[in-house]
Simulated assay, not measured.
Amino acid sequence: MTVLLTALTCICASLLLFSSIVTILSLIANPKKPTSATEERDMALIITAYKSVDLVPQLLSSIYRSNYSNYHVYVVADDCQDCRDIEENPKLTVLKPATALSSKLKSIKYAVTNYVRNHDTSIVLDSDNLVHRDFLAEMNDYRECFKAVQGRRVAKNLDTFVASLDEMGEIYHNYVDKYAPYKLGSSSNLSGSGMAFSTSLLESFLFSEEVEQLMEGVIYGEDKLFANFIVEKGHQIAYHYDALVYDEKLEKKDQIKRQRIRWFKSYFINLQTAASLAGVGLLKGRVGSVFFGVVSAFPPLFLLVLGTGLLTLIAVFFNPWLSLILVGAAASFVFNFLFVLWLTNAPKPVWNALVKIPLFMFEQLKAMLVLHRHKGDFLVTQHSKSVNVEEVN
């Protein structure tokens, strides 16, 4: 029992300390930033909408205000009955699949196969997003050096404690899982929206044998699939901190479980691939691949915290010194979490929501306990927060 407990303590303490070490190292890292692009690349902006296009007009309005002109927008209105609120525009194509796709990845592929011209760059957005007026120009700069770039998603709504807690997690993961790895020479994880790719790279993924096989069923974690594909091909995924995409955060407590079920499914499906990336990278001496694989395999934070608490209680009865190690590692993790919020200038509503973290964790635990009941469910999260870009810029 003591040997097992010691091993579990080492694993748990290492995971808790890992994020702190990554944050510290990122503070002294100084990655080379691309210089300003000399010309505008031709960009395709893919907006995936499922069952509703109610928020698409606001997103389109923010795009049309961009300090950038060489683009064309594709709205994939999947299973959407009414698109009359979307005004016609020379830079816009609205696509309505004949049959429901019920998949973000299928919607992206549908848009690519219906491009009106050959685009150099493809950008993926969700229908509830808004973009900063400099977003496209910022992405254009980074595309000079990188085939894949993740922009920074920030909240467009912080009017409930649930939204603030959702944004709190996004802020932390934006830094620890995306920005810090990129600064340290590895790859950022992808967020599902606010992503820019070389169109040729996107097409090679969409029409790969692996993805073609997945198209027959429900697809979870398409962003993780694509990120793994990019890293396996030897490319680095950059993270552009100044390329801002405004994302709708959860408004109500009952939305948490549905979203987290989808995220947890994606995590567990991706776990084997992430471990494989780290293992292959270790064998081939690819430090960036190892780092990316470890970050991708990192457990959900609430599971790590609950596991640490349970293990600490057990250790008190068998080996108190191990419990002290866990308490010290947990303290380091908590300090790092708060430090990241401070470092990234987290807004006041996020700080005020810290006391509600246990409630958020409880809702995630409920989601974990019912994972097995949602096999074959697309698990879409409904968004309805109508906000104009002037209100968040």
Rank of each mutant, 00 (worst) to 15 (best):
T2Q: 08
T9W: 04
T9A: 04
C12G: 10
A13N: 04
S14C: 13
S14D: 00
L16E: 13
L16V: 02
V22H: 08
P34F: 04
T35F: 10
E40R: 06
R41H: 14
R41W: 09
R41N: 05
R41F: 12
I47K: 02
D54V: 08
L55Q: 10
S62F: 00
I63A: 15
R65Q: 13
Y71I: 01
V76A: 12
A77M: 07
Q81L: 09
D85W: 05
D85T: 14
I86P: 00
E88Y: 12
E88I: 09
P90Y: 09
P90F: 10
K91M: 07
L95C: 07
A98Q: 14
S102K: 14
K106S: 14
K109R: 15
Y110A: 06
V112W: 07
T113Y: 02
Y115L: 11
S122K: 01
V124F: 14
D126I: 10
V131S: 05
F135E: 01
E138S: 03
R143Y: 10
E144Y: 06
A155G: 10
K156L: 04
N157C: 13
F161D: 14
V162E: 13
E167I: 03
G169T: 11
H173Q: 08
Y175V: 01
D177V: 12
D177H: 12
A180N: 04
P181V: 07
Y182R: 03
G185P: 07
S187W: 02
N189P: 06
S193Q: 08
A196C: 05
S198Q: 08
E203T: 05
E203A: 02
V211D: 03
V211K: 03
L214M: 14
M215A: 05
E216K: 13
D223T: 02
F226E: 08
A227W: 01
A227D: 14
N228I: 12
N228C: 12
G234N: 06
Q236K: 15
D247G: 08
E248F: 11
Q255P: 03
K257G: 02
Q259D: 04
R260H: 07
W263T: 11
W263N: 13
F264N: 12
Y267V: 05
N270T: 00
L271N: 05
L277F: 02
L282Q: 10
L282Y: 13
L282R: 09
L282P: 07
G285Q: 09
F292K: 11
F292T: 09
V294H: 11
S296C: 01
A297D: 02
F302E: 07
L303F: 10
G307H: 09
F317T: 06
W321P: 02
W321I: 15
A331H: 11
F333C: 04
N336D: 14
L343E: 06
W351F: 12
K356E: 15
M361T: 09
F362T: 12
L365E: 06
R373G: 03
H374V: 13
L379D: 07
T381W: 05
S384L: 08
K385N: 04
K385G: 00
S386Y: 10
S386V: 13
E390T: 11
V392T: 01
V392P: 02
N393C: 12
N393D: 13
